[in-house]
Amino acid sequence: MILFFSIALKTYCMNKLLQFSSITGKVIMALAGVFLVTFLGVHLGINLLLLSDDGGRSFSVAAEFMSSNPLIRIFEIVLFAGFLVHIVLGLVVSRQNRASRPVGYVVANRTETSFLSKYMLHSGIVVLIFLALHFSDYYFVKIGLVAPPEGIGPHDFYAMTLHLFSSTWYALFYMFCFVLLGIHLNHAIQSAFQTMGWNHTRYMGAVKVAGTIYSIAISLGFMVIPLYFILFR
């Protein structure tokens, strides 16, 4: 699997068509990232309906709307493309970055930089693992690739969620992934502005603060749900 992936990646890098400049590649990655960041806000909005005390009725209505509205069906394809572009470019860029320093330092770098900004690949990989799990838990069940848990219909996302969060280990792993997503986003949002060239002394401070607030909100927002189910159900 890893071998196949590395070969695919190599052909991808060598493909002449895709020999874009370092800045172009990063701009595409940033734009895909900005799209994904907006999507997270929408997803969180729907997920928070899980907390309403109506036996999952409002959540199911929203989930039903998301999986039946034709406009959202189209956007789902755009979303998958966004994920693919962001992930593939992230791996390609990281690979190039690693290649640009074939002999490393004996003493690890001690330059003071922003928190974990050097570990975007690592936090990204954890989010990718979560994404794979999330697909097999929900999306593959929906399209019939994976059988739903016993006694639960393939479209009953509320019951599936209850079932998943009934395992404390799953809930803890879920929360761990969102801590890392928050760290990833904290660097990513201001980084996207910088890559797009929108760095200005007048507003960059505000962008950084807003980015941090948004990433904390996303991270905590998603984590509240499993916490609620562990503590109160």
Binding site: S22, G25, K26, N109, K118, H187
Partner: peptide
Amino acid sequence: GFGNCSNTYA
């Protein structure tokens, strides 16, 4: 063969 900027600002 220089790498890509990842905005760590080191």
